[in-house]
Design a protein around this nucleic acid. Structure first.
Length: 614
DNA sequence: AAAAAAT
């Protein structure tokens, strides 16, 4: 094995030594000011509200307003329409409109420094032995395979400096301690900044959130200011980010707050299970980017408290989940049947680690002349996660888990065990396993959809902090959640779909650390035998002989379509279809697609510096 | 069949 930045990161004692000079709270302006006017002293003199250069159609059903040129290319002329009275647009009736940074501080609007808690996080980190689950991971990015298809693909960048994200964004990138863009960021950010639609497959934990947030925030800052409607209490966000779970929406919101700190771009989150009134109040204070789960958003749309007329940027995280059977109708309603601008008018970006072909076909309804990007990551389902499969009959699962946990506890220092995430199939199963673990001396908690949102968030905090180092979860926790220090993922019950397995094990092995994934396999998982054996084989994992045996006898199954699990989360179905039927799910043949373009990633992280993982 | 997502 070679060595890489991941080692220097994990082994560095200086991680907390990075200076954090943003502890001074800075007040922000009292009334809502369009982003491009903020941090711009020239905006001091409000000019009378001029006619907006473009307006949404208030008939509400054309949905095709062309904002500032439309098509896809975003206008660069960001300074027009300065001070045209946005602040008077209906909110904060009490305070007079002050469209600039120098006037009108108001405590209520003070922007909380989103970085202050990072110090605490670092303290927690010290509690975990950083090196414990780190194995050598050499030059992890030297040979990242990349597939790109589409017309006129913008070239990738090697540094954040090459892309002009603006000084405020650059500061935030430094505050996040990112030095270099991750592979998916290197490719996706230029594509997004060029205004192109994008379907991006990138491994779990590869920095997808920043990949779509940076261009949206930058775009909103530089876009021509367009006056939004004053229709009652309705708000008109410019960017919309949808995700399949409440916790993931929260996480994206937290990240986006950091990226947008002091840029003037306001990010608000809305999701179910929490007070809608509080969310409404947040929205009324102004929103540029709305992060939401589908159910709550539909509610807000039906109450006419949110309108999508002004949306220019739409991002779907975990896009394949968002378009599967459970979610598709809601997503279609939001994207196609409300007042969102049409594809081609807005810019649409879909991100996921997995992209089944069927879902790609559905997704193409939402996209216009899009670029398909698949960036493999050394890690996740490949090198960084050690995958084990054990044959465990249903009745032995609990005692088998207990054996694993005891062994793990003995290996730990000071009785402190690394975090273990246990996936089960059902909500009831989660509760009962958690209870059983607790009474057997393993402090555990559980997260699933039958728990209140308060309980869910408490469980997550308690797990992250190490207070209950075991979390029993349903698939609600399978996707996207970034929980540092998860050393072990146990598939107590295996999922029926190999893509779900990929997402679940992706909860470990994050940010360059290694991880262990153990699966309990038995006769009820036969349909998964074949895709699982193949996935493990492709990831250079040891495949037990009995599994190979099952795989050779089992029919195809465990996946909505056989190629989705492919090497790097999938190929562009547009290319695949041009090859005709291509059924070599196995054998790593790649169906003749253009994998293997070296990403030419320089590595070279300084000790104590992390990259822009998501 | 289950999970998630609005009240």
């Amino acid at each position: 094995m070679r060595t890489s930045w991941a080692d220097s990161v994990a082994n560095s004692p200086s991680e907390t030594a990075v200076s954090n000079n943003n502890s001074v709270p800075r007040p922000t302006q009292s009334t809502y000011v369009p982003p491009h006017l903020r941090s711009n002293s020239a905006a001091d003199t409000p000019t009378p509200a001029g006619p907006p250069t473009a307006r949404p159609s208030f008939s509400g059903n054309t949905g095709g307003s062309r904002w500032g040129g439309g098509g896809g290319a975003r206008p660069e002329s960001g300074r027009q329409g300065q001070g045209n009275g946005y602040a008077a647009a209906g909110r904060d009736g009490g305070s007079s409109g002050r469209n600039n940074r120098s006037g009108g501080w108001d405590r209520r609007e003070r922007e909380v420094n989103p970085f202050v808690n990072d110090d605490k996080v670092d303290e927690v980190k010290q509690g975990f032995r950083e090196h414990e689950n780190t194995v050598i991971n050499f030059d992890a990015y030297e040979d990242i395979p990349v597939e790109i298809s589409g017309e006129n693909v913008p070239p990738p960048v090697n540094t954040f400096a090459e892309i002009d994200l603006g000084e405020m964004m650059n500061q935030n990138i430094r505050r996040c301690k990112y030095v270099k863009p991750t592979p998916v960021q290197r490719y996706a950010i230029p594509i997004a900044l060029a205004g192109r639609d994008l379907m991006a497959c990138a491994q779990t934990g590869s920095g997808k959130t920043a990949a779509f947030c940076f261009p949206i925030i930058t775009g909103i800052m530089r876009d021509q200011y367009i006056q939004r409607s004053r229709g009652g209490r309705t708000v008109y966000p410019l960017g919309l980010i949808l995700s399949p779970t409440r916790e993931l929406s929260c996480q994206i919101h937290d990240e986006a707050k950091k990226f947008s700190y002091q840029t003037g771009v306001k990010v608000v989150v809305a999701y179910g299970g929490a007070s809608i009134n509080q969310q409404l109040r947040e929205l009324e204070r102004g929103v540029d980017i709305l992060v939401a789960t589908p159910g709550r958003l539909v509610d807000l749309l039906e109450r006419a408290r949110v309108s999508l007329q002004a949306i220019r940027y739409l991002a779907l995280d975990e896009a394949d989940r968002m378009l599967d059977m459970g979610f598709e109708p809601q997503i279609r309603k939001i994207v196609e049947q409300m007042d969102m601008p049409n594809r081609g008018v807005r810019q649409t970006m879909l991100f996921s680690a997995t992209f089944p072909r069927e879902i790609q076909r559905l997704a193409s309804d939402f996209l216009s002349n899009y670029i398909f990007l698949a960036v493999g990551r050394v890690g996740s389902s490949t090198d960084l996660i050690v995958q084990r499969v054990e044959f465990v009959p249903e009745s032995d699962k609990r005692s088998h888990l207990m054996d694993l946990l005891h062994a793990q506890r003995e290996n730990g220092e000071h009785g402190k065990q690394a975090l273990t995430l246990v996936f089960v199939e059902t909500k009831k199963g989660a509760d009962s396993l958690e209870h059983w673990l607790c009474i057997n001396g393993f402090p555990s908690t559980t997260i699933h959809g039958d728990r209140s949102q308060q309980e869910r968030e408490l469980a997550l905090r308690s797990f992250k902090s190490g207070k209950t180092p075991i979390l029993v979860a349903t698939d609600v926790a399978a996707r996207g959640l970034d929980i540092p220090h998860v050393a072990h993922v146990v598939n107590f019950d295996l999922p029926n779909d190999i893509d779900d397995y990929v997402h679940r094990i992706g909860r470990t092995g994050r940010a360059g650390k290694s991880g262990l994934a153990t699966a309990f396999f038995n006769d009820s998982n036969l349909s998964l035998a074949r895709p699982l054996a193949e996935l493990m084989h492709e990831a250079n994992q040891e495949v037990p002989q009995w599994l190979t045996h099952y795989a050779s006898r089992a029919p195809y199954g465990g996946n909505k379509n056989r190629r989705s699990g492919g090497r790097f989360g999938g190929c562009d179905f547009r290319r695949e279809e041009s090859f005709g039927k291509n059924l070599d799910y196995y054998g790593g043949g790649n169906g003749g697609t253009a994998f293997g373009v070296p990403a030419d990633y320089g590595g070279g992280y300084a000790p104590g510096i992390t990259s822009a993982w998501d």
